[in-house]
Design a protein around this nucleic acid. Structure first.
Lengths: 149, 149
DNA sequence: CTAGGTGCAAAAGGTTTGCGGTTAA
DNA sequence: TTAACCGCAAACCTTTTGCACCTAG
């Protein structure tokens, strides 16, 4: 529970750079995250932060996590917020998710997945590798907004 | 609405191979999926299947989608069913998700992401590429079950 | 001073589950 | 015949939202 303000000058500045305020809750959640390298869920962070700051709320944790993502101090590991999508294309391919219209496009590999430049430790036995690309599709039809859902 | 049983012999056999039954609902959902290549969500599938089979339920659609995934006829695009996880490692890396214990391990790249063997069409403008690996971690400590969450 | 943040509690998706009735094999 | 499956509705889990109060700058 390092409350050393010197260490968190960076946090305050980063927040300010994104037009966000420094608060005691944000400082505390950020410190909690720095002490944990096990990719916690929002609920994990909430429980851990709550231990030292019992009155903190879930909404504040979500707010803070969003703020930290926004100013680049943390990243989300699985960024898909919406419903699971299904795919009947069984050929090896990956997916391009358009952040403007929400459509998903299939993208093919040039070679096989063996060519991926990954340094996988020997004690990790992979069974599946997924590549997902985010961006926008600048179609001539210009990325029509999805009906909804 | 192709109810041609000849085309769906494969479906019945694939289901049977996984110890699952062929039902009219599953055939209908599968045909619906084959007619749609836009990576529908479960709700999309439900609405479309409902058009020709008004009494079908959401639970059945989920059941069927699980069955089709189980026998390898479709795939899930974003497979993360649980909560979003957060990461404070800002170096370029990807994630290994252990399906046994639920832990996430960081995996480093050998080179930069430019080396990925992808054939991205020119009208798709990527802003972010994520690689996620699933498998199991055969640690000496032997993949301890997570507390929960 | 005031825009932005906080806590609480309720609502909103997406998915799962329990149950009585139905059906494929 | 019967284990598996169906439809329905309620429950569940994660995340978002509305609102009155509070606070950083």
């Amino acid at each position: 529970m390092k409350t050393a303000t010197s260490e968190n000058k960076g946090l305050a500045r980063k927040l300010a750079d994104s037009g966000l305020r420094m608060t005691t809750q944000r400082e505390h959640v950020y410190n909690t995250l720095l002490e944990q390298t096990d990719h916690p869920s929002a609920d994990d962070v909430y429980l851990r932060a709550k231990a030292d700051m019992p009155e903190i709320s879930m909404a504040t944790v979500y707010n803070t996590l969003d703020a930290l993502v926004k100013c680049g101090l943390i990243k989300q590991v699985n960024v898909e917020r919406s419903a699971t999508r299904y795919c009947s294309n069984l050929k090896e391919h990956c997916h391009f998710f358009c952040e403007e219209c929400g459509n998903i496009h299939d993208v093919n590999f040039k070679k096989d997945k063996g060519a991926l430049p990954l340094r996988i430790p020997k004690h990790l036995i992979p069974t599946q590798v997924d590549i997902s690309i985010r961006g926008h599709c600048s179609n001539p039809v210009n990325c029509p907004n999805r009906a909804e859902n």
